[in-house]
Amino acid sequence: MAKIAIDPVTRIEGHLRLEVEIDGGKVKDAWASGTMWRGMELIVKNRDPREVWAILSRI
C-alpha cells in the first residue's frame, strides 16, 4: 500500500493538500485538507453588521 501526498496543490486560490492511498494500482482512499484557517467566523462575531461584507469578501 502506497500513499501519495500533493502539497501544495497549485493554480488554485488557497492552500490545499491532497493525500491518496493506493493499493494494487487502485485508489483505496483519499483525503483533501485546506491547510490554512484564519477564523473569519470568529472575527465577524459581535461586529457592526454593516462592515461584515468587507471582512468576509476577503476570504
Binding site: 501544495p8 496543490v9 497549485t10 488554485i12
Partner: peptide, 13 residues
C-alpha cells in the same frame, strides 16, 4: 507563485 505556477507538490517546493 503557488496560484500561477505549473508544478505542484514536491516539484513546486
Amino acid at each position: 507563485h503557488e496560484t500561477i505556477m505549473a508544478p505542484s507538490g514536491h516539484s513546486a517546493e
